[in-house]
Design a protein around this nucleic acid. Structure first.
Length: 329
DNA sequence: TGTCCACGTCT
DNA sequence: AAGACGTGGAC
């Protein structure tokens, strides 16, 4: 057997192990660009498994960049319901409009600068598009590849894991004339083999090149995230199978989406209350919520939702969870 | 059930 | 440039 270099080993592994994902079967160049655009937006901060059903439904309902650019906002949001980070949906439509306006083609821009000017397309997505759609010799640095790099080069010090250094190190892994497949191979390897915990090193095609494998130390240095605790009281109105929600214009999270009427309260009020308590994390905030349950639907401005039949209402998972807690008592 | 983790962009 | 932005899954 001939000795393969590192990128060929990774590609070889990918050819035999790649997942069959719906955005990997475009029927034309235009569709390839469109599938990449939609899937990459959905995959931002969201795992593949979660994205698959959303992607399928989305491209069925909104099949190309033209229809995306003029889709009704409610329809768009309904297709995004439950996926989270709802500004992605708005940015996606704005991006579609800008692409049509600027290029008059149903294709994505082909330079880093032009891509990054589009809303919702940052460092990672622009590089992903260049590699996937233009076979450009760039490597997008997503969470999977970042972990792979940290393990291969055994990066353990803060200054070693700075983004610029990680970018330089990714390039030491080399390129391929099949860059489209190569970057997907790297991400797939990170996701399926070089997992955050208990990596499957025995199945890794490049374990002999991996410093962490040699040292048998697979720890990853993670960023420290803030985790603020805030206290709220939520008014849950339940009458038969109906409940009362309002459009959120008050808090920065879940803007313009349906939530229960809520107020921020002091820790003392929360701690001294005997009402049902519920803890939920949203974004980087740790919310502690008092459930204030009422039987009557108030005569105030809002939206009455039948929770057995949600219909056209767009309800974020956050609200649905509070719902279930309130009902379960 | 609660707690922790994974996952890019924008400002 | 640190913090805001959501959700699902594993244990």
């Amino acid at each position: 057997m001939t000795t393969l270099n590192i990128s060929n080993k990774i590609l070889n592994w990918y050819d035999n192990n790649k997942r069959d994902l719906p955005w990997r079967h475009p029927k034309s160049k235009e569709q390839s660009h469109y599938y990449t655009l939609i899937s990459e937006f959905m995959l931002q901060q969201t795992q593949v498994k979660t994205v698959i059903p959303y992607f399928k439904k989305f491209v069925y309902e909104i099949p190309n960049i033209n229809s995306l650019s003029e889709v009704d906002d409610r329809k768009l949001l309904k297709l995004w319901e439950g996926l989270g980070y709802y500004s992605r949906a708005k940015n996606l439509k704005r991006t579609a409009k800008l692409i049509l306006k600027r290029t008059k083609k149903h294709l994505l821009p082909d330079t880093l600068k032009d891509l990054k000017e589009l809303p919702g397309i940052g460092d990672y997505t622009s590089r992903a598009i260049l590699a996937l759609e233009y076979n450009r010799k760039v490597i997008p640095l997503d969470g999977n590849i970042e972990r792979l790099i940290k393990r291969i080069f055994y990066l353990r010090k803060i200054n070693e894991i700075k983004k610029e250094n990680l970018m330089l190190k990714t390039h030491l892994l080399g390129y391929s004339s099949r860059q489209r497949d190569y970057v997907q191979a790297l991400m797939e390897l990170g996701s399926l083999i070089c997992k955050p915990s208990d990596p499957l090193c025995n199945n890794c095609p490049i374990n002999n090149k991996c410093a962490s494998f040699k040292l048998k130390d697979f720890k990853i240095l993670k960023k420290i995230k803030s985790n603020k605790v805030k206290y709220f009281k939520a008014d849950i109105y339940c009458s038969k199978e109906k409940t009362f929600l309002i459009k959120n214009n008050k808090f920065n999270f879940l803007k313009n989406l349906l939530i229960f009427p809520m107020n921020e309260i002091k820790a003392i009020e929360y701690n001294s209350s005997k009402s049902k308590k519920f803890q939920i994390k949203i974004s980087n905030m740790n919310m502690k919520i008092l459930i204030n349950k009422n039987n009557k639907i108030p005569n105030k401005k809002g939206t009455i939702v039948n929770y057995n039949k949600i219909g056209n209402a767009i309800i974020p998972s956050f609200t649905k969870k509070i719902f279930n807690v309130a009902l379960s008592q």
